[in-house]
Write a protein that binds this DNA or RNA. Structure first.
Length: 279
DNA sequence: ACGCCCACCTGGAGGC
DNA sequence: TGCCTCCAGGTGGGCG
């Protein structure tokens, strides 16, 4: 579910309800996700004020007033749902609502993650940047300084297919299976092309496509958010605009192309692309 | 160091 | 209806 646009959408949805508010009650409904919760997790969160919510790669970072940061990752199936006090009492917990936060304003945030590939940790602010989870992460694709040249440098010498390189968070962060497929399509680059051959103008095109696809999806997530008034884990309207992802056998959307979208498996993940438009 | 494969876990979809 | 297989938006560890 969550690649950069989804995580960013969740961040924007949570911010108005959490930032400058106090977490007054915490319910931890199981002892571990992908990794165990830290000791006294609920006790350490209770009573804390949230100073801000940042995003790094696909991680959410909740800055707390005691000098600690709550690090959250949504894994494959993680979602955050928002309820007000009234609607919360009407909705019993789902079996995968693992963490429940109540705020001083009467909002309830539920972290739901069926597959439990997500995680929640508490670390001192100063330890976050150097944390094992963040070591080696590549640049943020939406940073202005991230351009074709920056990508090209990172791809130098990589013999792996460009699709696999884009999924590797050491190359750049935030891009997952959907947006890797979509960006490669927009850029007209074959997912099977060896990564080190993506240089110069081709790298420039690919970076433009990555930014475009991420920004458009954030916009669409935002409109979903406005309509549903909750940061769902579900995809926003962008999913109705996939050009190739999950469209095996459909016509390539390029006018006049007519080729059928093809599915192949790379690095254990499905790749969707047009063999004619992507070289 | 690199590139590939798998495991982690649950649920939904589709075939029979 | 039920059972089986395959597939899913991520990540990190282990292997050659």
């Amino acid at each position: 579910m969550p690649e950069l646009p989804e995580v960013e959408t969740v961040r924007r949805g949570l911010a108005p309800r959490l930032v400058d508010h106090r977490i007054v009650r915490v319910l931890q409904r199981r002892k571990d996700l992908r990794v165990p919760f830290p000791g006294k997790f609920a006790e350490r969160l209770e009573g804390r004020r949230v100073l801000g919510i940042d995003r790094r790669a696909k991680y959410l970072l909740l800055r707390l007033d005691d000098g600690n940061t709550l690090i959250a990752h949504l894994g494959m199936s993680g979602r955050m749902t928002l309820h007000d006090a009234k609607s919360a009492s009407e909705h019993p917990f789902d079996r995968h609502d693992h963490v429940v936060l109540d705020t001083d304003e009467g909002w309830q945030v539920r972290f739901n993650d069926a597959r439990r590939f997500g995680l929640m940790l508490l670390e001192p602010d100063a330890a976050v940047a150097g944390h094992k989870l963040f070591k080696g992460l590549g640049p943020e694709p939406l940073d202005e300084t991230f351009d074709g040249a920056a990508l090209a440098v990172r791809l130098r010498g990589k013999r792996t297919p460009i699709k696999a390189a884009l999924l590797d968070q050491r190359t750049l962060v935030g891009v997952g299976n959907i947006y890797a497929c979509e960006a490669l399509f927009l850029a007209g680059v074959s997912p099977r092309r060896s990564a080190h051959t993506v240089q110069g103008e081709r790298a420039e095109r690919l970076v433009k496509a990555i930014k475009q696809v991420l920004l458009r999806s954030i916009d669409d997530g935002g409109s979903t958010l406005r309509d549903h008034v909750q940061p769902g884990g579900e995809l926003g309207y962008f999913q109705t605009r996939f050009n190739v992802y999950d469209r095996e056998g459909a016509r390539c959307p390029t006018p006049g192309c007519g080729r059928l979208v093809r599915r192949v498996v790379q690095a254990g993940r499905s790749t969707f692309y047009c063999t004619r438009c992507q070289r």
